[in-house]
Design a protein around this nucleic acid. Structure first.
Length: 292
DNA sequence: CAGCAGGTGCAAG
DNA sequence: CTTGCACCTGCT
């Protein structure tokens, strides 16, 4: 273990933790259940637990947790054993990525739950981040379980496939997911019927896993790559949304290019680090409005 | 009020 | 295989 842990009441503190900036981690488009508090810290729910995360100088303070939960859940969730220094060194050989990494230096790719990512990214298709957050919040309040209160707000776990599968289209639509309600119900049923075992997909190749994911209605190339990147440690996945398309065309390709061609270009250029490259480029492009 | 955001499914070339 | 259009919702 490379990290230095202290505990203090319901807090776990990691001293001198590099490559971790809460704003970059939680606002780079990979997660939808974290909100900023008045003091600049972030509170969110994952794996049925409420956590608050704050940067304090060189340290990161994880509040509302225990050492046990920290080691059981949050080390994997934040991928704290990953050497981001090495990843950044490799990618920084490319001058454009060097710039993007300087901008989003504190990004870490989270290891989130497969089922939650499947549904979250189905909702994300043709949708904007505030709407996606709203829909996921409504789904959780309506069909998840109440797990507790933090700083005056109530929190709910993400609903299980079992808890959604027998709901009506209208009930799911009530959570403001729009035309995606049928995809959500269909996915819940496929998972409950064990047509696809989503927790086994991380053991398949990226290609095979993508093919399985795209059997879910509402999951295409972009959504499948997001699910793999954010819940299966598949760091060669390269999801291309409108911002990544813009930034790739603006800096690399210099002309309008099909998604298929950009996918091939990204895979060839960034290889096993394509997912990290994508994340730095996405955050850079989106925050700065590059290529718009 | 129309226009826009911005992935996927589906039909047609 | 590639292209063009419809689609919920909410904000301009």
């Amino acid at each position: 273990m490379k990290y230095n842990l202290n505990t203090e009441g319901n807090k776990v503190i990691m001293k001198n933790l590099k490559h971790f900036e809460p704003k970059h981690v939680f606002e780079c488009g990979q997660c939808f259940r974290w909100e900023i508090e008045e003091d600049g810290s972030y509170t969110g729910v994952a794996y049925g637990k409420i956590l608050n995360v704050r940067k304090d100088g060189e340290d990161i303070v994880f509040s509302n947790t225990s050492l046990e939960d920290f080691e059981e859940i949050w080390i994997d969730y934040f991928d704290l054993n990953r050497d981001y220094g090495e990843i950044k060194n490799k990618l920084s050989k490319d001058p454009i990525l060097k710039e993007a990494i300087g901008f989003g230096h504190g990004i870490r790719i989270l290891k989130q739950d497969e089922w939650e990512m499947l549904i979250s990214f189905i909702i994300s298709a043709n949708n904007r981040i505030p709407m996606i957050k709203k829909a996921i919040g409504l789904l959780s309040e309506s069909y998840g379980e109440y797990i507790g209160e933090y700083n005056g707000r109530k929190y709910y776990s993400f609903p299980t496939a079992e808890s959604l599968k027998d709901k009506s289209i209208e009930e799911i639509e009530g959570c403001k997911v729009g035309f995606r309600a049928k995809y959500i119900l269909n996915s819940a049923n496929m998972v409950c019927n064990k047509e696809i075992y989503i927790y086994g997909l991380k053991d398949l190749s990226t290609e095979a896993s993508r093919n399985e994911l795209m059997k879910f209605a509402g999951v295409g190339p972009k959504v499948s790559d997001c699910i793999m990147l954010f819940s299966m440690n598949k760091y060669d996945a390269f999801p291309i949304d409108v911002w990544v398309k813009r930034v790739m065309e603006y800096f690399y390709l210099k002309e309008d290019t099909s998604l298929k061609k950009i996918q091939e270009y990204g895979r060839d250029k960034f290889g096993e680090y394509a997912g990290y490259a994508q994340q730095y480029l996405f955050y850079y492009a989106r925050e700065l409005g590059i290529g718009k």
